[in-house]
Nucleic acid binder design. Structure first.
Lengths: 219, 219
DNA sequence: TTATAAAATTAAGCATGCTTAAATATATTT
DNA sequence: AAATATATTTAAGCATGCTTAATTTTATAA
């Protein structure tokens, strides 16, 4: 039985599994999902019992192919909703994530396929994340790097942003910093890891918190 | 705290309150919501505690104005979603009710207002039910009667259908019996309360079960 | 390598929203 | 009006998904 809660756990595990820099530990998941560590251990047992993850106490957990399939499906629903809400229903860039977070758990396959079709089978959501296809495959997309890891004085294009914090999205909106904007890192300050980027002939200072949630691509 | 379950109870109570023929009794609600009578009593206490209904043991319950406001809001979300799903996303007449039943509990006010606007503030859903406005008022609509109560050989137009059973909607679809179809009752059989109606020069037999879920209006 | 710190798990408990079975109140029949 | 039937409520219990506190395992440091 895949409940809203279980779908969110699977999504979170998928998320950590697809990072090179971090893994799906109990603490990470607890932090990500805003629940206690105990809740994670608890759920790990349940998800393991129903064959959606493998789990060895104190060792860690991993999605089974069945679990990954569900995770990708939820992510598909989320990202299609985000794009639909923005393009068709004109919700704000900073609003669509939270709205999709709800809708993703209450959308039939028939409906999501119609949304997919309506949008002409898009590859990316409004935050630049790839949208899993009906068959579960992700569209191909070029390698990206974190803006926080970008080199000085090279030309990049802003292609993706983590959207879990709507305040960050509002912040970027106010700066006019939308996807596909070109930028160059002009300075990096080691004391607080903030950076100065040049966009559209303007210099803008971005905190570490901001730059490590933005992804860029070398032009 | 208005949960999915509470919203469904409020909707059910509202539904029975707006019938002349029946009332919001424990048994009726239990039957409508597919739960035990005990569950109704249980929830009645809770809804009463948070001020959404008045409730006197063994006497019955009634929505407070606060409860009615929530009920109408859920109904608004339901009916707007139904119309949107059908008109924009091309879901079938028989599918939209069940889908809306889920979405209605997970839709922000900002989103539902955008849907309302997108549809140009419609008055009726695809099953002929009036859509509560943002201010909570229902659009005016003419008196209707149950097809099962219609008189012989008079001209009616089919204007509304109860949509809780998707099988009924599929059945009508297959007959080509859509809203705004003109019809005349040609015969009534007392032994099973079935009727014969004439639509588009065709005679069709409808069971009691069907005719008492269809609403018509005299032309 | 042993002590200590950090991470993970278990135990006990809680709220929500159900269930069935038993008890009680109301309605109907005789 | 008493007996019976029906409707409603209460009691006890269960699953889900959390919590905090205590315990156990693993990692880190002296």
């Amino acid at each position: 039985m895949s409940t809203t809660s279980k779908e969110n756990y699977l999504k979170a595990i998928y998320n950590y599994q697809s990072l090179e820099s971090d893994t799906a530990t109990t603490s990470n998941l607890a932090n990500y999902l805003n629940v206690s560590n105990a809740a994670i251990s608890d759920m790990a047992k349940k998800l393991s019992d129903i064959g959606l993850i493998t789990y060895e106490k104190y060792k860690g957990m991993e999605l089974t192919s069945k679990g990954e399939k569900i995770a990708l499906n939820v992510i598909r629903r989320h990202r299609l909703w985000e794009l639909f809400l923005m393009k068709v229903l004109e919700l704000k860039w900073s609003e669509v994530h939270d709205e999709a977070e709800q809708l993703e758990h209450h959308t039939s396959e028939a409906l999501i396929d119609q949304i997919d079709k309506f949008l002409n089978f898009p590859d990316f959501d409004p935050h630049g994340h790839p949208i899993p296809k009906k068959n579960g495959l992700l569209p191909k997309y070029p390698k990206t790097l974190l803006l926080s890891n970008a080199e000085l004085n090279r030309n990049y294009v802003f292609v993706r942003v983590n959207d879990r914090e709507s305040e960050l999205i509002s912040f970027l909106t106010n700066l006019g910093l939308i996807l596909n904007t070109n930028l160059t890192v002009k300075e990096k300050f080691s004391f607080d890891e903030s950076i100065v980027v040049r966009i559209n002939d303007r210099n803008i200072s971005l905190s570490k918190k901001v730059s490590e949630n933005m992804y860029v691509q070398l032009i």
